[in-house]
């Protein structure tokens, strides 16, 4: 069973590597949105620094959302999902492997890019570990929650906007905790509380959302 998990992970990784443009899109989007703000708000570093926690998180959230729209679409269209549903393996396990692979290639890359962009916004170097850690804990939640929406809207021709409407409200706790952690670090306060809450959200979504995603896909395939 864990063998299938590893095989699916490898297969997804291979597929993502053969379509590098699709991987780069969310990253470029993330970088450009953040780069636009100093241009729009002006180079006043005090102002930029104070809005940067919210800014980084909103940009990360939109970048993840952007990458999720097509998460299951090609699998749905070429019949791969049907093969998963009729296979003897639990669908929840398969989707967890799929979302995990997707996160490693898009979410994790975003996390690694964030410190550079943080410096660009004038975040002091002392807050960068908190930025990294909060994104590291928060982006899997964004991917997993978004995958629930992607599973439900996969059968629709234009599911992109509906996906955003369904999922963005669910992102609010992650947004508050993530930017809160960064805000606390910026003011020299301990961020451990926020980060622990984020970690608990991560644990919760890793254990529960695969079942919701699997249920959503079963409905979409059965339509």
């Amino acid at each position: 069973m864990s063998n299938v998990f590893a095989l699916l992970f490898r297969r997804e990784a291979r597929l993502l590597c053969r379509r590098p443009a699709e991987l780069a899109n969310p990253l470029v989007f993330f970088a450009i949105v953040i780069a636009l703000f100093p241009l729009a708000v002006g180079p006043e570093s005090q102002l930029l620094q104070s809005i940067s926690p919210g800014l980084v998180w909103v940009a990360a959230l939109l970048a993840v959302l952007l990458s999720l729209d097509g998460l299951f679409r090609s699998d749905f269209e070429d019949g791969s999902l049907e093969q998963w549903v009729v296979s003897p393996h639990p669908l929840a396990l398969l989707v967890l492997a799929k979302v995990l692979a997707h996160w490693v290639f898009s979410g994790l890359a975003l996390v690694l890019l964030a410190p550079l962009l943080g410096l660009m916004l004038g975040l002091p170097a002392s807050t960068l570990p908190v930025l990294l850690l909060s994104l590291l804990l928060g982006t899997p939640v964004l991917s997993l929650l978004g995958a629930v929406g992607a599973a439900l809207t996969v059968g629709l021709k234009r599911g992109g906007l509906l996906l955003a409407l369904l999922i963005l409200p669910l992102y609010i706790p992650v947004l508050i905790l993530g930017s809160g952690a960064l805000q606390a670090a910026l003011q020299g306060l301990p961020a451990a509380g926020h980060l622990l809450w984020l970690a608990s959200l991560t644990a919760l979504s890793v254990t529960l959302t695969p079942f919701a995603i699997a249920a959503g896909l079963t409905i979409s395939v059965g339509e």
Binding site: R11, R14, L15, E77, D78
Partner: peptide
């Protein structure tokens, strides 16, 4: 016991 091949057969063009 089942082998299912639908109209779309689950073949990935990139693989």
């Amino acid at each position: 016991n089942l082998l299912w091949i639908g109209h779309a057969a689950g073949i990935k063009g990139l693989l």
